[in-house]
Write a protein that binds this DNA or RNA. Structure first.
Lengths: 191, 191, 191, 191
DNA sequence: TATGAATGAGCGTTCATTCAT
DNA sequence: TATGAATGAACGCTCATTCAT
């Protein structure tokens, strides 16, 4: 009984998610409208809000989904033996994060939350990214004077920084990839 | 006549700025409303927009003002001989940037602009920060295998990263300052 | 300058009011929808709410308008020499109040407010009704052992009571008018 | 089986009622939410509606319960020999009716119903109030030119009216009790 | 009887920004 | 420059009620 209902509920939720996914790939995440989604799904607005706290909660799921898919790819790759390989491994992920200003802003905003109970999918995917980077770095190939955890933290800092600079006209001399490569070389292979 | 008008205009602008400054320190930057400012100034809303392109332009000025005041302090300090000194020098600046989520978000967003002509005060203050950091780093005390420019770029990346993590409950084990210190030591003094 | 704007504002407000009035007479007050009004007026929803605090505020004005028009009629009538004349004088007013359950409920709810600053048009029209009734009662024809103010208060109590009973199946043996007449005779001409 | 079910059903209904009663005394009738009641009872929302036609039906029962308890007290009292005694006898009842605007509104709305089959507990308690008042009025002490039924009707009208005025800031010069007393004296003892 | 997901359908909010005067 | 009414365009809320299982 209870289970049957849950099945229906799950179905509705999936419908909403997949329609949102579809719309997002058509018009971009920033242009997604709750009303369009519910209209397409043929459900009431109230239904949307009984499945997702607010629009951001949906975006969090949607974007994290994409991030996780990209992390899946990263996970399957062999260990990174060089900065070039690392950058190559990161680029699909970063490409998505920097694909829309809206996505980048949301990514930053939802990267963390002040309350643990508000930690969402994106924040968790960042933990996963961290873990993957740590695992995939072939320790022999990179500096060993600091912990892998710290290395990973730095890598993420440089990723964010590169994307942010990529959105800035003052630093358009290099693209995200080149800048990141330069920075990561200095970070991972000093001396 | 023209002169009188210009004088009045300048006065209006200054009034708006100083009332905004005042309100911001009372309620925070994020809670500042154009309506409140114009009401306090006794002018119409339209007047506000004939003085500032948009609300962001005002916030850009207001926040950059604070940043520049903090940079003034940094400029007067002696050269940084150690990471500790560097962190100590940066903290007032970072303290302000991390004082409100709204300020941090705006800082990131206005750090750059896609069009050169849209470069604002904050973006320029960042260039200044970059220059100051480069000047103040005593090259003999820090790694010399990379350019000062790159060093500075990394320092800024770690600053942003530390603040972002500071807004996240998952990383509350350390405060901004400690995290930054650890990272900068690894960045500036490898090996 | 200021005046010109005010004129425009007044015009918009009047447009909203007259369209609402029109719709109300077409579909009834209870079926009035804010969206229909703004759609008909061709203005944004925000405009509606900058003219009226909420939907009730509009209804208050609309209903009070009607009440006042009916009070105008009452005011022009000669003094009431008998209960029959009083009832006849009151009936148009009561007819409107009892025309829709929605109207009656709103009438009761907006008859007063706990805060003076929230006193609205309906509440004020009630004060006017009170004054008119006091003026129009030919003192010689009715009981003189109590003040006209008290008489009027009682008349209003019986009006409300009659309408309320009119909405009740248990008391459908008499109509509003008959019941009121009986009650008022006992109230105004005891003995 | 059937018996067991019926027993369970009755128990569920009682549970809902008593939890509702409890919540109402904690937060007031107006703040009572079906959701809270069913959550406290650990049953589904639908269950609520298989026990009560709608929320009003529950409120009708709950409020009528209280009214009847107060009427029980009134019934035990000796006959009213004066207006003062009558007012004193009515006050507990009126105190409850005027305790919350929500209660008063519901009281008025459920005092009658357009269809006899929709007559509920409150409406019946009003009939009872009417009967009690008629019985308790010592005819010798009050006007005898009109029927006790009419007297009672008027008393109820003045009760409603007094409460309504009590909810209005414009008439806060007197409290419910004083106003009622004045009105009833004029109504019951003219001349 | 019980379940609980889904509904409905309108209200009110937000507030930076525009534009005709 | 100044005015301030109007805009826009969606979000989120409400919460009693229904209905398929």
């Amino acid at each position: 009984m209870t289970r049957a209902r849950q099945a229906r509920s799950i179905r509705t939720r999936e419908t909403l998610l997949s329609l949102a996914r579809e719309k997002a790939s058509a018009v971009g995440y920033g242009a997604l409208r709750v009303e369009d989604i519910v209209a397409a799904a043929g459900v009431a607005k109230g239904t949307f809000f009984s499945h997702f706290k607010d629009k951001d909660a949906l975006m969090d799921i949607l974007i994290a989904e994409r991030l996780n898919a990209l992390l899946d790819g990263m996970e399957k790759a062999p260990k990174f033996q060089s900065v070039d390989e690392l950058v190559a491994g990161l680029m699909p992920y970063l490409g998505f994060v920097s694909s829309e200003r809206y996505v980048f802003d949301l990514y930053l905003r939802l990267s963390g939350a002040l309350k643990v109970e508000e930690i969402g999918e994106i924040a968790e995917s960042l933990v996963r990214l961290d873990r993957i980077v740590i695992e995939k770095l072939d320790r022999d190939r990179f500096r060993q004077d600091v912990s892998p955890e710290l290395l990973s933290e730095g890598i993420q800092a440089f990723c964010i920084s590169s994307i942010a600079l990529g959105f800035c006209a003052l630093h358009s001399d290099q693209n995200v990839e080149n800048r990141l490569e330069t920075q990561l070389k200095a970070w991972l292979c000093p001396g």
